[in-house]
Design a protein around this nucleic acid. Structure first.
Length: 641
DNA sequence: AAGAGCTTAAACACGC
DNA sequence: AGCGTGTTTAAGCTCT
């Protein structure tokens, strides 16, 4: 597949200068050497990610299906029950998945739980057809077309609401070039997304659908494979279905119209400021009447369905992220002993605190810095932004990312979240946003004895970062180079040979790089971008936040995410000045060429003390990768040369 | 524009 | 001779 080529290119050899690295690194870094167009790579990677995701989803669905099958015998009985008691029982997963969205949407649109969303999403991710099939099933069961219609309508409404929230994100993404959706072809990306599903997924799908479909639908005999083909309109299997399912065009149009009508004149969730807010569609309409294009352009079809799915995913991710950010905020406030004026979310603020204390150097605990005020303020603004972060799964990211972004390192703030990052970097071929020095330090500090042999350091790199599983010659050379170059790394002769240790004082002395406001602003702008390829900053922020860019779904979020991060960073930066510490080191060149965003993350997860690097693992308190610095730095020596 | 930090590449030395 | 480990130097970038 495309991605393959892209990936391969990347993975190629280190031999050629950056070989693989160059592609990723090169392009990302904007180095002249790499010839690979970053854009292409990005696209390919995205696809790759999408596939991964699709596979996962497929597996999940398969499981669900299996469960369902087991319950098949009961299904018939349940079917009758469905008509009456929907809320109840989850006797039948499948049915539930089908009904949940609908029924829930109708009653309490916003109350849909993540799980429900997930279910819906999963089902849909595979294919719109599946959704349709499900709907058909219901219909067949109910034999009440009206009901079906109502359900779809409700479902759509739900989707619309969700979209309303996320709409902007998608648009931003598009602007960045991540999504090349154009007004006319709103759904292309999505299509590609679903269409790119690998053979493996197809098989899975077949298994699932065949088993399911055959058993339940005699007439659907050969549709099993269709699920994947989102691009093609779903062939009507069920007469009833055809009426609306295939319709997209008309039947749904009617429905949609009614939907529109339901909204007060000139006000529709998908219509704002004279622009159609449908994801990827920025069609301009002078008047609300014209906006009826919604019925034509965004009727129920594969494309729209796929978009809805994506949107749902986005929302889901955002919800998760929001929850996280709330937690983070709470933790921050708790840590700073600031009484929150707002009702914040969950507790568990301790995390942050604990982290701090954990850091060995923490002692100096850096004065919480002068953040005091920040916390409160940020809340409001951040909230919205924070939503952006999509919490995605590690694997989803694509490797295109820019390599190192040191931003986060610069500031003393603990960087992001990370427990997830850990996994993220372990699985995603994404370059961690830290300098080699920082990574090496981390590796050493994580070791029980705070010392490692060169080979152990290598192993740590490969173990913790998928990115370092290739181009060994390149990064190993860099590791050695850094060990020798930086005073902070001390070689100690050992019985067995030599081991490397870290001289924290020296490490802290490293000159920190701060990002001035102007720069920050600039970064933000670029990241918001309107830049062609997904801005490095953007990626960086994602990486640090653990946000994989995965699917197009998350698409929109990143932008905001980076913005949010940038803001946070700025705040941090301000504080930073106070305590300069540079701990962090690393300024490495951020590979992000022109734009970077300094993403600084804050501590969010308790577990993650560290930034992206956080590696994980270390379950033990990691030596504070970042915290450390954060706090230590204050010591005063700082650097700033 | 200069200086600094970082990454990458590469040459070279040493020891096993 | 080959490989791993270390050290250095140099070039190219980005950021301040």
């Amino acid at each position: 597949m495309m991605q393959e080529s892209g990936t391969e290119a990347t993975s190629n050899g280190p031999a050629s200068q950056n070989g693989g690295a160059s592609m990723e690194g090169g392009s990302r870094e904007g180095r002249p050497k790499s010839a690979t167009p970053s854009v292409e790579v990005t696209a390919a990677d995205l696809l790759h990610l999408q596939q991964h995701q699709a596979l996962q989803v497929a597996r999940q669905i398969l499981l669900q299906q299996q469960q369902q099958q087991q319950q098949q015998s009961q299904s018939h009985q349940l079917q009758s029950q469905q008509n009456t008691g929907r809320k109840s029982p989850k006797a039948n997963d499948k049915q539930q998945s089908l009904q949940v969205p609908v029924s829930v949407a109708m009653m309490t649109p916003q109350v849909i739980t993540p799980q429900q969303m997930q279910q819906i999403l999963q089902q849909q991710v595979l294919s719109p057809q599946q959704l349709q099939v499900l709907l058909q099933q219901q219909q067949a069961l109910m034999l009440q077309q009206q009901q079906v219609s109502a359900q779809q309508l409700a479902f759509q409404q739900q989707l619309l609401q969700v979209q309303q929230v996320q709409q902007q994100h998608l648009l931003n993404l598009q602007r960045q070039g991540l999504l090349t959706i154009q007004p006319g072809q709103t759904g292309l990306p999505l299509h590609s997304l679903t269409q790119m599903i690998p053979a493996e997924l197809q098989q899975l799908w077949k298994e699932v659908t065949n088993a399911h479909v055959k058993e339940e639908h005699n007439n659907s005999s050969n549709n099993g494979h269709r699920g994947l083909d989102l691009s093609s309109p779903a062939p009507p299997k069920n007469p009833l279905l055809n009426q609306h399912a295939s319709t997209n065009g008309q039947y749904m149009s009617h429905k949609r119209e009614s939907t529109l009508e339901e909204h007060s004149p000139h006000s529709h969730p998908l219509y704002g400021h004279g622009v159609c807010k449908w994801p990827g569609c920025e069609a301009v309409f002078d008047d609300f009447q014209s906006f009826l294009h919604l019925n034509n352009e965004h009727a129920l079809d594969d494309r729209s369905t796929a978009q809805c799915r994506v949107q749902m995913q986005v929302v889901q991710q955002l919800e998760l992220q929001l929850a996280k950010d709330k937690e983070r905020l709470q933790a921050m406030m708790t840590h700073l002993h600031v009484k929150s004026t707002e009702p914040k979310a969950t507790p568990q603020p301790l995390n942050l605190v604990s982290n701090v204390t954990l850091s060995k150097s923490a002692p100096e605990a850096s004065p919480p810095l002068s953040l005091p005020q920040t916390p409160t303020t940020p809340t409001a603004p951040l909230t919205p932004l924070s939503q952006t972060h999509s919490v995605i799964t590690a694997n989803s990211l694509h490797s295109v990312g820019p390599m190192r972004r040191r931003y986060s390192e610069k500031y003393n703030m603990p960087i992001s979240p990370i427990s997830q990052n850990k996994e993220f970097y372990m699985n995603a071929d994404v370059r961690p946003p830290f300098t080699y020095a920082s990574l090496i330090r981390q590796a050493i500090l994580e070791s029980p004895e705070k010392q490692l042999t060169l080979n152990e350091i290598y192993n740590w790199f490969t173990r913790m970062f998928a990115y370092f599983r290739r181009n060994a010659a390149t990064w190993k050379n860099a590791v050695r180079h850094n060990l020798s170059l930086h005073k902070c790394f001390v070689r100690v002769e050992n019985v067995k040979g030599a081991v490397w240790t870290v001289d924290e004082i020296e490490f802290q002395k490293r000159r920190p790089q701060k990002i001035s406001s102007p720069a920050l602003v600039k970064n933000i702008q670029t990241s918001l971008g309107y830049g062609p390829t997904l801005s490095a900053a953007f990626q960086a922020s994602m990486a640090e936040n653990n946000i994989p860019l995965y699917t197009t779904a998350s698409i929109g979020s990143p932008t905001l995410n980076s913005l949010a991060n940038a803001i946070r960073e700025e705040m941090n930066g301000a504080m930073d000045h106070g305590n300069s510490n540079g701990s962090d080191s690393s300024p490495g060149r951020s590979p992000l060429p022109a734009h970077h965003i300094s993403v600084k993350e804050e501590p969010l997860d308790p577990e993650d003390h560290e930034g992206p690097l956080s590696l994980v693992t270390t379950a033990n308190h990691s030596p504070d990768f970042d915290h450390h610095r954060d706090y230590d730095d204050d010591q005063g020596h700082d650097d700033m040369l």
